[in-house]
């Protein structure tokens, strides 16, 4: 399903928050990446790295401080007319982390899922609306009897499925999944991930998958971007990133992931990230070190990393 057609281009995106007394928090500080149609792009990082802010800014839940977001070549952060805005909202949807606070407790599942259908006038009458919702419920592995219930009557995994059905209702092309599984139990996580993968195959969806669980991100993503303190420090195909991590932060992050293999765990050597080891002679830039493998580094580091890669 992967293509070379760019569906989303993020260019020098910045999001600063005022922190009082004239200070600013640079939550997202100049990140650029592209997402191709049909792929899953994983965005990983620890808390405070700006990964969620990036996702929320892309979908315009926040107004960007600077930079551009092009969706199919069109800048969606420019001033849009109402109809253009509506069209954009339909093309990009979001699934949130916490399935209990992202569903309105006073609406039935039917109304939650159909809200997008109503806003965009996608159904002509009540009968069609009901049919659509039932189809969607079935697509995410729930039954149509669930439509008349309220969110509190469901378990966490089921609620997340409702969130997915809501996002699917308007037939978007890109879905931003902001930590969609981290609030769920292990066995339920796997169910939801399998569901997301199946829906992607059936509907040709593109995902921006934001998470901190590296093994899950590796499993679901085609390409991965690693964020640290508002910067994108490394970006590569997921296999490449796990085999040849270059940036010291990526290395330390990967070496910290515990795996369900006791022998591996007994011998695991953790690498500690020490920012003082980085070259500070100039402002680091995002450079392509190998085809499709980008690292944030200075010119000196660029040469060093290149030799490191060739040595392998």
């Amino acid at each position: 399903m992967k293509t070379e057609e760019k569906i989303l281009e993020v260019k020098n995106l910045k999001k600063y928050f005022p922190a009082g007394r004239g200070k600013v928090v640079k939550a997202v500080d100049d990140i650029s990446f592209d997402i191709y149609k049909g792929e899953t792009f994983g965005l990983v990082g620890e808390s405070g790295s700006g990964k969620s802010t990036a996702g929320r800014t892309i979908i315009r839940l926040y107004d960007a401080t600077d930079g551009e977001v092009l969706f199919k070549g069109k800048n969606v952060h420019a001033k849009l007319s109402k109809s253009e805005q509506l069209k954009f909202n339909r093309q990009m949807q979001m699934i949130f982390q916490d399935p209990s606070s992202s569903l309105n407790p006073r609406m039935t599942v039917m109304d939650i899922i159909a809200e997008g259908l109503d806003v965009h006038h996608l159904v002509k009458n009540e009968k069609e609306r009901k049919k659509r919702v039932e189809e969607l419920l079935e697509a995410v592995g729930l039954n149509k009897e669930h439509a008349s219930r309220f969110p509190h009557e469901f378990s966490g995994g089921q609620r997340q499925r409702i969130g997915i059905a809501r996002a699917l209702a308007v037939e978007p092309e890109l879905i931003i999944c902001d930590e969609p599984i981290s609030a769920l139990d292990v066995s339920i996580q796997a169910q939801v991930v399998n569901l997301l993968k199946r829906l992607q195959k059936e509907r040709g969806l593109t995902y921006l998958f934001i998470a901190h669980d590296l093994s899950m991100v590796k499993y679901i993503s085609d390409r991965i971007g690693v964020m640290h303190l508002g910067h994108m420090v490394e970006l590569a195909d997921s296999d490449e990133l796990y085999k040849n991590p270059i940036h010291p932060y990526t290395k330390s992050l990967l070496s910290a992931v515990p795996l369900p293999d006791p022998n591996y765990e007994r011998n695991r050597i953790r690498q500690v990230y020490d920012p003082s080891q980085l070259d500070t002679s100039e402002q680091p830039q995002f450079r392509e070190i190998r085809p499709r493998h980008w690292v944030r580094c200075t010119t000196k580091e660029f040469e060093k990393y290149k030799r490191e890669l060739e040595g392998k």
Binding site: Q158, V186, S187, Q189, V193, S215, I220, P260, D261
Partner: peptide
Amino acid sequence: WGLLGSMPTLDDNESEELYTIPGT
């Protein structure tokens, strides 16, 4: 088995579905 299977490892093949425990 289900618990072990539902956790992907770093060198898993992505084309395979995760082994899951159905239901709740």
